[in-house]
């Protein structure tokens, strides 16, 4: 177990990081309550690894990777019979990928994006969140996901294919990824 002073440092880190981690978790899983559970599990993993993390610095990078792992593990383990609301009902209200053009014009681009994100396979969704919310480079996203840079590129490209195709030709307008990176 870490010494007391390590626990103080860990608590300070956790208090500072949990908000950002929770937002990331929400974008990865689409549910604020489940996001809180995922953050709690990720922080437990960080606690266990804490002594060596503080030697190396970059504790947040470890926490983020632990969080991604927790979310992906959860997605894999979901029973096929479990009914899971992948996105807050309020967010997707009025929007459905399947219903297509029955979209009401008042549907916001944000809701549309979240609804399509919810339908992406978990790793594609994680690529989008890590690249465009966490603003990670391809190399850092690959480390966070434990895969090659090429896999991140291909998974991100597939995800953006999907996102763009929904926005294209719809009242929502064009979807861009701006910000100085190619995707």
């Amino acid at each position: 177990m870490p010494e007391r002073r390590d626990e103080d440092a860990f608590v300070a880190f956790a208090q500072g990081a949990r908000g950002r981690l929770r937002s990331t978790a929400y974008l990865l899983c689409g549910d604020w309550d489940r996001a809180a559970d995922h953050v709690q599990e990720a922080l437990i993993r960080v606690y266990v690894a804490w002594p060596r993390l503080t030697k190396a610095g970059r504790e947040y990078g470890y926490a983020r990777k632990a969080l991604v792992s927790v979310v992906l593990d959860h997605a894999r383990r979901r029973s096929s019979t479990e009914v899971v609301a992948d996105v807050d009902a309020s967010i997707g209200a009025g929007y459905s990928v399947d219903s297509g053009y029955d979209l009401a014009e008042q549907v916001t681009a944000r809701a549309a994006l979240l609804a399509v994100l919810a339908d992406l396979p978990p790793r594609q969704r994680a690529c989008v969140v890590l690249r465009y919310f966490e603003d990670l480079s391809v190399a850092d996203a690959a480390r966070a996901l434990g895969c090659s840079e090429g896999t991140v590129k291909s998974q991100t490209a597939r995800a953006l294919d999907r996102l763009r195709s929904v926005f294209e030709d719809s009242p929502l307008g064009e979807l861009t990824v701006g910000g100085g990176t190619s995707w």
């Binding site: 908000g19 974008l27 604020w32 994006l113 861009t176």
Partner: peptide, 22 residues
């Protein structure tokens, strides 16, 4: 024109209260 980054930031701009139990 919709920017993915901006939409993601907007999506988490107003989260419910944080009840993470440290």
């Amino acid at each position: 024109v919709n920017d993915v980054r901006a939409l993601l930031q907007e999506a988490v701009a107003d989260p419910p209260g944080d009840e993470t139990d440290l």
